[in-house]
Amino acid sequence: MRGPRADFVERIRQGGVDLSPALAAAFAEVPREAFVPRGFQRHDGTWAGPADRDFLELVYADDVLVTKVDGRTPVSSSSQPSLMAMMIEALDVRPGHTVLEIGAGTGYNAALIARLGASVVSVDAQRDVADRARAALARAGIDGVRVEHGDGYLGCDRTTFDRVIVTVGIAGVSPRWFEQLAPDGLVVAPVEHAGNHPVLRITADLRARALIPAGFMTASGPLTAASPFPAPAPPRTLGKLTAYAEGRFDPPLELAYHDLWYAAGVWHRRATYAAVPRQRRNCLMLLDEERTGGAIILPDGSVLAGGAQRDRYAADAVVILDRWLAEQRPSLRSWHIRLAPGGDPDAPILLPHTWELTR
């Protein structure tokens, strides 16, 4: 590799991924630029195209590339490479495997999986996205991937799959995928929890483990049906927030902040992960029913609160902090999850239903 591609694999490793040699070779060999020929949206809202001087530098950054927007809403993208890598490693793909991918995106994720020796069927609900992914795979010379336009909920009943990977945020997984899954198969999917989409690794017996925190564009159709534990809708304009409890973490939590957030989502139905004024990052929040107040737990463990139910939600936040510490700061991976049917009775989905801490 030359130029911006030269350090691509190392950038992915710096994102916290223990790359296998086979997947490292796939990232080194598959040209990511072939999958974004029309460019993508920069973080400042401008569009980067192949003729721009920074195009390849941006393509080979460890960053998401938004390739389609509806107004201001991103609706298709090439995911952050380190996140792709974590999900593909969790999928445990072997040569000769058949893989069902829900959400084709640019086709780049399927290309990486195919490079590992698997046959891939990729299904996307947007016809233009499926067409572009198919063309990109051909342009990059990738064999072993079939892209179909269709409802990902239905899967593809033409074969039995060893693995299923989902590249869009969903409320729950489709039972159709398990009907098409080998007995020792795996599903890796970002499933909604407290306002975000942590990636779950789900076995054929409908047991799951959370792997990594993540945020994804949301799927359409039955896969986003309401769950019994819905996250609160995003905040409206928040009123004044004042200090309620002092910080207790020095230095402030970094990765462990996601562990605290995940536990809060299990223990409190109003927990969410939301943008908060004057904070540089999204924060764990217990959002009141009016969506204008509640309590925020900051990474240093301090609690801010506001609104008519300030004292109630702030007290709940302190209880969550105390409980998380009493449980010895369980990580996101410490939870065993069982799935159960829910959603639309005419198109049911399997939802996280019960959680149990393990050591």
Rank of each mutant, 00 (worst) to 15 (best):
R176H: 15
S82G: 06
G342C: 07
D18Y: 04
G342S: 09
F249A: 03
L186E: 00
S122I: 04
G239Q: 07
D184E: 14
S77T: 03
F40V: 02
I170N: 00
A219L: 07
V121H: 13
V93T: 03
Y257A: 10
A22K: 14
A305Y: 03
A208E: 01
A110W: 11
G342M: 07
S77G: 01
A275E: 11
A315N: 14
A133E: 03
L19C: 09
R209C: 08
I349F: 08
S79H: 05
P21C: 12
D344M: 08
V266T: 12
F8V: 01
T354K: 13
D52K: 00
T46K: 00
W177L: 04
R236V: 12
E101M: 11
P341W: 12
A340C: 05
E289G: 11
R281L: 12
E101W: 10
D157S: 15
V99N: 10
L112E: 04
F249G: 10
R359D: 15
S78W: 02
H268D: 15
L19I: 02
V319T: 12
R278F: 12
A274T: 09
A231P: 14
A243T: 10
A133D: 03
V120E: 05
S174R: 09
A263P: 07
I337A: 04
V121C: 12
A264N: 08
G103E: 00
F161C: 13
E33V: 05
A34Y: 06
D63R: 10
L186C: 02
P183K: 03
A295R: 06
P95V: 02
L211K: 09
L19T: 02
D7Y: 08
W177E: 02
P213S: 12
L116R: 08
P183A: 06
T242R: 13
G221P: 00
D288L: 03
V75N: 08
R280C: 08
L304E: 08
A48N: 06
I212Y: 14
V121Y: 11
L206P: 02
A271T: 01
N196A: 15
G306Y: 04
E246T: 07
A204I: 04
P345Q: 06
P299D: 01
R270P: 00
L350F: 10
P348E: 09
P198N: 09
S76Y: 03
R270W: 01
P175I: 12
R42Y: 06
V17P: 08
A85I: 00
I349M: 11
I113N: 11
D316G: 05
D62T: 01
D44E: 09
L298S: 07
S20M: 05
R32K: 13
S76T: 02
G215P: 00
H197T: 04
K240V: 15
D7I: 07
I297K: 09
D205I: 11
Q279P: 09
W261R: 15
H197I: 05
A214H: 14
S122F: 06
R280G: 15
N282F: 06
H353G: 07
I165G: 00
T159F: 14
A104C: 12
A133C: 08
S331F: 02
G39Q: 05
R207H: 13
